[in-house]
């Protein structure tokens, strides 16, 4: 009995001393953390995706407060988060246009002929490494869906042999851009709907031979544009998004219908959000 009592007392006293010591040092050596850092961290989405280029949301918050990163550096949070952080940091968030990934290929199974059957690792990168082209077009979407696998938001899916991005789900993390072995995917401003949906740089006749939906480099679109917003890059049309007013004249004239009109969301991709919420 005596031993139990002594043990209890001694351990309790040690515990109290240690606890008091912790409280004391906690008060005495309190390091004021920048309040803004905690506030900024609160605004960030907190899924630590690393799309900003920092190790996680904590690191990003520290970088924003130290002025290393811009207030609109979080591609996931987009403009609302940037505005909130801008309020905390006391700087105006430069209005950051939300970007979405866009696959620059229209070569569906119908438009572009398949080159036989591919039996191998079901991954575009592996196939590209082996020098295999699944379709006649050397530039087009291979349709094996590496971007689909890599997308953390499940925003990409294959529709008729071509990857299609659902702009509603896309957070512009850029993973698919890095993954696509053909370099077909780019981040474009969401509000700019007039986009050239082809990457084939070959001359017209060659393009026509392999794909019925490819840019043949006729430059009709450049002549239609009154705003100097579409140019030829070799034999491939290219939209300068800053100048584009989305009048859609170029798209109307395009003989290959390779320029998207101001409403490009395909029905198949548009119904996606419901599925995502279920999952």
């Amino acid at each position: 009995m005596n031993t139990i009592l002594i043990t209890t007392i001694v351990i309790t006293v040690i515990g109290i001393i240690v606890g008091a010591g912790l409280v004391f040092t906690g008060k005495k050596f309190f390091v004021p953390v920048d309040e803004r850092e905690a506030a900024v961290r609160e605004c960030l989405p907190g899924n630590n995706c690393g799309a900003c280029g920092y190790a996680g949301c904590d690191a990003m918050a520290a970088a924003i407060v130290s002025g290393e990163a811009p207030v609109n550096g979080c591609p996931v949070g987009g403009a609302p988060v940037a505005a909130k952080i801008g309020g905390i940091m006391g700087t105006d968030a430069e209005a950051l246009e939300r970007k979405v990934a866009f696959v620059r290929c229209k070569g569906t199974c119908e438009a572009c002929r398949q080159q036989g059957n591919y039996v191998g690792i079901n991954d575009c990168r592996s196939a590209a490494l082996a020098g295999i082209n699944l379709k006649d077009c050397d530039y087009g979407c291979m349709g094996l869906g590496s971007c689909v696998t890599v997308c953390p938001q499940h925003a990409i899916r294959l529709v008729d042999g071509v990857a299609v991005v659902n702009p509603n789900l896309c957070v512009a993390c850029g993973l698919c851009v890095k993954t696509c072995p053909k370099g077909l995917i780019e981040l474009v401003p969401e509000s700019k709907h007039v986009r050239v949906q082809c990457m084939n740089r070959d001359k017209g006749p060659l393009v026509k031979k392999v794909c019925s939906a490819g840019c043949i480099g006729c430059s009709l679109c450049t002549r239609q544009c009154a705003f100097d917003a579409i140019h030829m890059d070799g034999s491939l049309a290219k939209v300068t998004y800053e100048n584009c007013t989305q009048c859609g004249k170029c798209a109307e004239k395009c003989p290959a219908h390779v320029i998207t009109l101001p409403c490009p969301v395909p029905a198949a991709a548009a119904e996606k959000p419901e599925e995502a919420t279920e999952a």
């Binding site: 912790l22 050596f29 390091v31």
Partner: peptide, 17 residues
Amino acid sequence: LVIAALVQIVEMFLKKK
């Protein structure tokens, strides 16, 4: 008990000093 608390205290101390 003591080692855990000690490391905690040392950590606070280092963070400040």
